[in-house]
């Protein structure tokens, strides 16, 4: 797209290429400088000291981290499945023929979408005195489920009207039209958006840290705040961040792959 033939600049000639190379070297030099400063600071503040990294060799600490990671993934799985179900139910509600159902589900979806997910989690955890694990799952489900409900509704509405008109003309009932005509087509176009929303869910599982649920980040904090390990905040971030970012990038990559393959399929069909 914005590689060699961009509408924003001419195809560079020899002089422009030389100039761009110079800019490129300046930028690279600046970045390397920043990086070097960071590395210098890391050594300067003794972040690579043995006693800060030694804890990661202890079996107990490794188990703690793995348990945290397992909890994170479990929460993600529960929240993903439940919010997909929640989204499906309330999307169906918003597409219903009955005005009361439509109105109520619209209200629910709009309310939970407008609330910060953390307020929901705190409310369930503190005001309703639910245990952290359930509070986290419930909060994530309510928020992401509501967002997904809007995604589903938008997806179903985006299917060309001729499709449902043709189905009705063939004598199908509303349920049949939905299940066998609209939803299969909608799911194909919605899949990338759904998965992007699941990335948000995965990222938000780390909110469990704030209500002291033993998920991955909380496990990291338990190590980082341990005086015996001389407070290894930076080493913990250096261990945990790549794992979190890697997991999210895998999911995002899946969404991008599905999007591009969907585009290709549509092109060949047309």
């Amino acid at each position: 797209m914005s590689t060699e033939s961009s509408a924003l600049y001419d195809v560079p000639g020899p002089k422009a290429l030389a100039r761009h190379r110079t800019y490129g070297w300046i930028v690279t030099a600046l970045l390397v400088g920043v990086l070097a400063w960071v590395v210098y600071k890391l050594f300067d503040t003794d972040q690579f000291a043995y006693d800060k990294w030694a804890p990661f060799e202890y079996v107990g600490v490794q188990k703690l981290l793995l348990r945290g990671l397992r909890n994170t993934l479990q929460i993600f799985a529960w929240a993903a499945v439940l919010s997909l179900a929640f989204g499906a139910v309330f999307a169906a509600g918003r597409l219903s023929d009955h005005r009361v159902v439509r109105w109520v589900s619209g209200l629910v979806v709009e309310f939970f979408r407008a609330m910060p997910v953390l307020v929901l989690i705190f409310f369930i955890f503190i005001a309703m005195k639910v245990e952290p694990r359930l509070a986290l799952i419930a909060g994530l489900t309510l928020y992401n489920g509501s967002v997904l409900a809007e995604v589903f509704r938008g997806g179903v509405n985006a299917v060309p009207r001729g499709q449902s008109e043709a189905a009705y003309a063939l004598g199908m009932r509303k349920t049949t039209v939905m299940v066998s005509i609209l939803i299969p087509q909608a799911v194909r176009t919605m899949l990338p958006t759904i998965i992007s929303q699941l990335v948000v869910t995965l990222k938000d599982t780390s909110l469990g840290y704030l209500i002291s649920y033993e998920e991955f980040l909380y496990a990291g904090k338990q190590i980082a705040t341990n005086l015996d390990y001389s407070l290894p905040f930076i080493p913990v971030v250096m261990v945990i961040a790549p794992i979190y970012i890697g997991m999210c990038m895998l999911l995002s990559g899946l969404a991008r792959y599905l999007e591009s393959s969907g585009r290709r399929r549509n092109k060949t069909a047309a």
Binding site: I234, I240, Y244
Partner: peptide
């Protein structure tokens, strides 16, 4: 790519609690 795939809580943890240790 990096920032979009970082949980915000982790970023807060790294910036608010980590940076001061970093000087």
């Amino acid at each position: 790519t990096v920032l979009r795939n970082t949980p915000l809580t982790l970023l807060f943890f790294a910036v608010v609690l980590g940076l001061p240790r970093f000087g």
